[in-house]
Amino acid sequence: MNPDAATIAAGAPIEVDLTPIAEGQDIKVFWRGKPIYISHRTKKQIEEAQKVSLSSLPDPQPDSARVKAGHDQWLVVIGICTHLGCIPIAHEGSYDGFFCPCHGSVYDTSGRIRSGPAPSNLPVPPYTFVSDTKIQIG
């Protein structure tokens, strides 16, 4: 009953070009049937994400562990609420990050859970920078 070969093959890595995403905007791509948010964060958003004290977080993780070094402006997260799998809405909620309409979980600009029933941060998918403007997810 585990995924069959075709399903696994369709889940191969994909490349995403980042050039069209302006600062402050984000796009949603699908990989393995999951929506992945790629956000081009503004200076203010990066600052917000970095200066939070870790002890105040339900699932403590520094912002640096959630982005690639030298690419602070790019946040790549799987847009599936860690509570029960709904898709959070970007640029909503009181932390300028993501808000899940189903059960009210709020994530910050680093995709970390800040309030609501979700137990953990939005997961970061495996990805690498192929060049400065292109990433490969998977």
Binding site: M1, P3, D4, T7, G11, R32, G33
Partner: peptide, 13 residues
């Protein structure tokens, strides 16, 4: 959950 889905998300399988 993967076993229930037969994939990476709820889908055709």
């Amino acid at each position: 959950v993967t076993l229930l889905w037969g994939g990476y998300a709820v889908g055709n399988p």
